[in-house]
Design a protein around this nucleic acid. Structure first.
Lengths: 408, 408
DNA sequence: TTAATTTGTTAATTGTTTTAACAAAAAGAA
DNA sequence: TTCTTTTTGTTAAAACAATTAACAAATTAA
């Protein structure tokens, strides 16, 4: 039961029904391809004539193409299969992280083209913009044609204003009130450039992934545990952004208000318990409150090393991971109580140790969730190899073509 | 950018556009009445002919009526004003609380008819059902006509399953897995009966209230502080319910996981810091961890008494309120970080002391919100006299007629 | 009294879904 | 082979709703 906003509604015009049905057809071709017109008519519970009209429109726009004919051993005329034309355009994804920046190119349905490339991130915003500019120009003018580029999606770990392209605060990069998009938009004015927070992008990557399972992804949460903790919340199939594009920051909901200091300035945030840095500090026995300097050896020691040690029999390492797992679960319980999602997806380096910690996570979740049902909310691991951030950046570019039209 | 759910979509039919525009017209008449067809055409940025057709349909259904003519000093034909026919039916609202149950009757646009009546709540579910049955029968058969009743909305402070009508757990009432709706639905099978949690109902009461201010209520949170803490979250004009209708339970997000024990079984929940009981316990210096019994005098002492004492110069009472205010603000900061709403509404007895505590609440919010913008999220007080729970119960019945049709 | 202006309706047009009929294509039965 | 049956996809016609244009009604100002 959604209330129509009397200050901001969308009237239905003569073409609205067609637009809606067109997007439904696109969605169905996307999830069921290769698929025939007759199949679509059955899936949509409508008549084949309607499907013919709508598909013809998509064929004319070259969004959809006809392919081989089916050859099942059944009577009757063989169906003509339809599939999305993935060659129409390409998308560029950019994932900016502290140490390196990653780039991926995909076709118009998000399938990777070539290899992922990466380069060290310039932490000076101006020099970064210059650096990225050159890389993009290479792709847009040498490797591909600029007119074929559907858009560029850029992921930054921090809070940002989507429209203006302003990075309000990206603590790990040290960027504050930096407009990273303006120079790019000026340089490549033919191409759409999108900006998104990494936690939100990861959530997008899941709902827009083409999957074969029957999972209902209309209400999900993605929790990305890394240097910081990023969270993206999807409700009713839509990423929630809030008034300032800052919705979903569960990383800074406290476990204990008097807990360890957090990068955000407050103390006891969930992030201050479960980020990789926090886990490592705990392993080395440093009191985070004191922000004691770490030795060089400690600085080069990563969470992956810790996991390796835990697997190698280092009981202190294992205990450290278990403690993090418990805190992870306690925080997830808060998210579950607040959002009650269908699934929770978890990404980040710690997922590599999931077999070691999943029991602790589950029991912590059950400890603080309000009902038994909530305690069994399915948790799914997203391995790094799936590149959720890059996939989310791609979705920023490619997904709008499949999204539901704004109506009422 | 909403993803169309390929397993659960709604195809647009020939009538979909009309249905959408019809609901927009209803919404606009509701918010702008009395209003002429020409006004509607301007508000909707469409032509008057379209409005005529749609309004004629509403007139035929007797949802809308024509009223007086305008008489501004302008040239041209006088407009015929349209208004919602509020006499078409009536709604019954029931608010079940520990001590008493309240009932209100409204017309079909939620305007109160007669006085609010109340009676002591029978805490035995069967006897309660019987009691409520008799009360409802009186209204439906003696005072009014059953066929005119649009529906009955019942509010229960606890977790519940909307569809089956099951009260899963209402700790203050002591109800667990009680089906309160089944007997009513059986008895009054002509009438729709709706069940809703009190926090969620309060949120509904705000978005569906007919207001004159220009507030954008598409993203709001209602926090109801009483015996427990109920929270309702509205995103994109729609109350979020989650997979098990338990979404929004921010009352059990911890401030400190090792904090005082909470009625839910966990410890350190926000509720355990700010509920009326928690505030009173703190005033009487009881250690909640010990669950010490209170004296008879203490048992009869209410939060209103505490506020009175604080106003009367009792500095310990004032300090107690200030402490609650601080905890209230710290928890609100978590909600703001997580949801980033346009407004936060607060109801409950403590709002009567708002002039005493609002400064502490605000500074605690600023202390833990991630950005300056978030720190200035407007907080609005809803006084008890506005009966948000009963108004929410009414909205359950009357609002669906104005809601956006499900599409795509 | 006439012109100007605004409201609301009606008729015609256009675009879209829906129904019904049909053509095309293939397998199976006679 | 030939005919029947079945399925796919298209086309023509019908039904319906938004849109456009024209017009009638009602009122004020000149």
């Amino acid at each position: 039961m959604r209330k129509i906003n009397p200050k901001n509604f969308t009237l239905a015009t003569r073409g609205t029904s067609r637009e809606i049905n067109r997007q439904i057809i696109l969605t169905l071709i996307r999830t069921h391809q290769p698929v025939s017109r007759a199949d679509l008519a059955r899936l949509m519970e409508t008549n084949r004539a309607n499907v013919t009209f709508l598909v013809n429109e998509l064929l004319e726009e070259d969004l959809v193409r006809e392919g081989a004919q089916g050859n099942e051993k059944v009577r009757g005329r063989k169906p003509t299969f339809l599939y999305l034309n993935s060659q129409k355009s390409y998308a560029i994804a950019v994932d900016v992280r502290v140490s390196r920046t990653y780039m991926m190119i995909t076709d118009s349905i998000g399938k990777q083209i070539g290899d992922i490339i990466s380069f060290p991130t310039e932490l000076d915003p101006n020099r970064f913009a210059h650096q990225l500019n050159i890389r993009l120009r290479n792709i847009l003018e040498k490797d591909f044609r600029m007119s074929d580029c559907q858009g560029i999606g850029i992921i930054v770990p921090g809070m940002l204003d989507q429209k203006s392209g302003l990075v309000i605060n990206a603590p790990t990069l040290g960027w504050k009130n930096v407009n990273i998009l303006a120079p790019l938009r000026k340089e490549f004015d033919e191409v759409d450039v999108y900006l998104e927070n990494s936690g939100k992008a990861c959530a997008l990557s899941q709902i827009w992934a083409t999957r074969t399972d029957n999972a209902d992804l209309s209400d999900i949460v993605f929790v990305s545990v890394s240097d910081g903790v990023g969270v993206g919340v999807v409700i009713n199939g839509e990423l929630i952004r809030g008034r300032h594009n800052t919705a979903g920051e569960f990383g800074h909901v406290p476990l204990s208000i008097d807990g360890p200091p957090c990068s955000c300035g407050a103390s006891g945030c969930w992030e201050a318990y479960i980020s990789n840095l926090s886990t490592l500090s705990r392993y080395f026995g440093k009191d985070q409150r004191q922000r004691q300097p770490r030795t060089l050896e400690e600085q080069n020691f990563t969470i992956e090393d810790l996991i390796m040690r835990a697997r190698g029999g280092d009981s202190k390492a294992l205990t450290t991971l278990h403690t993090t797992a418990r805190y992870l679960g306690l925080g997830l319980a808060s998210i579950i109580n607040a959002v009650d999602p269908n699934y929770i997806y978890i990404g980040g380096e710690i997922t590599e140790a999931w077999d070691l910690i999943n029991h602790e996570v589950s029991s912590a979740i059950k400890e603080r969730t309000l009902t038994k049902d909530l305690g069994t909310t399915p948790i799914r691991i997203v391995p790094a190899i799936e590149h959720p951030r890059l996939r989310g950046a791609v979705a920023l570019v490619t997904a709008p073509a499949f999204a539901a039209p704004k109506v009422a």
